[in-house]
Simulated assay, not measured.
Amino acid sequence: MFFASDNAGIAHPAIMEALTRANTGYAMPYGADAIMDEVRAQIRDIFEAPEAAVYLVATGTAANSLALATYCQPYQTVFCSPVAHIHEDECNAPEFYSGGAKLTLVGDAPKMTPEALKAAIEGEETRGVHGPQRGPLSITQVTERGTVYSVAEIKALSEIAKSYGLPVHLDGARFANALEALGCTPAEMTWKSGVDVVSFGGTKNGCMGVEAVIFFDPEKAWEFELRRKRGAHLFSKHRYLSAQMQAYLQDDLWRDNARKANANCARLTAGLRDAGVTFLHDPQANIIFCAFPRASHQRLHDAGALYYVWSGSLEGDDPDELLEARLVCDWSISDEEIDRFIDLVKPA
């Protein structure tokens, strides 16, 4: 019963088979391998973006940080949600790779609103040389609280950013989960909605370790290449990144895995609702934030369940006190694990 993170599940067998196939003979290094040529064509086709510049890195932190650094000067600020992945989970890497650019947190909710974004943008460039200058907008999709921006919401935020001449970055570590939740196309969720660059995640959705960075306007491509190399994220044996991404895209594996993860989350959500669990946010993809009694948490931990207790302590005198939990489903969790978890949550 592992619900701690979709980072922790196994790599899909098709990914491992692709790595084995790639592990023969010789291949040109640094992204000049033949598999990468196919990956570029696949991604351009999927995103309906024939001119897009496509690059691979091994981690989401590198993808987000290098992409943002390409669009952000050291004296600028990145506008993002208070629970954006780049703020909560990346140890100031965007600030580091951009040479010191700061983050401006927009609003007080998991999803930004156009009104809050406009106010945050207007609040900068008010002190001349003494304050940060306006920089990119970064949208986390799926949000770190398990909610999803609609296509209309992304468009509305992008329109605000573009009205100030600011570029838009989409952190798509769970891109496929959001896409399946919305039922739209990759193009509709990105460049057709005003997104300039996207981190297209693979690691959380069945890959061993690979993320794509996609620039819909190739003007920034060369700068990104330089930053990737200077930042020590250009793989020499790049074919092992390429092979993962090729298999991930082949026959819509990326979408199939996301459908499974989202379906697993829906099954878990339904069971928890029946058990009377309180939800902190409406689960829309593969992440749940909820609260249930300490006694249930203790039963689950005694049975070996792994997940994050988000607030409160397992130790305490009141068995009925509600403790918050974060539960994340990946594609490989079985129905049996989900149902056993639900049974243990129910009052004894």
Rank of each mutant, 00 (worst) to 15 (best):
T190G: 05
P218M: 03
P29Q: 05
K237I: 08
D196H: 12
V197T: 10
E51L: 05
L327W: 03
I160T: 09
M245V: 08
G100F: 01
S334R: 14
D108Y: 10
E225T: 10
S296E: 02
G172R: 09
H238L: 02
D335I: 03
F3M: 08
G209W: 02
V328T: 13
A181F: 01
W191M: 01
F96R: 14
A270S: 12
A67H: 07
G135Q: 00
T269I: 02
L137C: 09
L300F: 00
L268G: 08
V168R: 02
G316C: 01
V151K: 13
F224S: 10
M28P: 07
P94V: 00
E315K: 14
V195N: 08
E159M: 04
E324H: 12
P114N: 04
A212L: 06
M16E: 11
G194V: 01
N7R: 14
G25R: 10
S296I: 01
V168N: 02
E223C: 07
F3S: 03
Q250T: 15
R294N: 03
S332G: 12
Q250R: 14
M208Q: 09
L105T: 08
N177F: 01
V142A: 15
A58E: 13
A266F: 06
V57H: 11
L182D: 08
L179F: 06
K118G: 03
I10S: 08
G165C: 04
F215D: 08
L327T: 07
T147V: 14
N177A: 09
R294P: 02
L56I: 06
V213Y: 04
Y164S: 03
L314N: 05
G183R: 09
R230F: 11
D252L: 02
A34M: 07
L56P: 15
D330S: 14
E125H: 04
G316I: 00
A53N: 07
V309K: 10
R255D: 02
A285V: 07
D330A: 11
V129H: 10
A161D: 05
N92R: 15
R228N: 11
G131Q: 07
Y97C: 08
A232W: 13
E48P: 07
N286G: 05
T104L: 03
P319K: 01
D6A: 15
L272Q: 11
S332D: 11
I214S: 06
I46R: 14
E144Q: 15
M28V: 10
Y30C: 09
K204W: 04
S163G: 11
T203S: 14
P347R: 07
H301R: 15
E180R: 14
E180V: 15
E38F: 01
A119N: 12
N7G: 12
E95T: 15
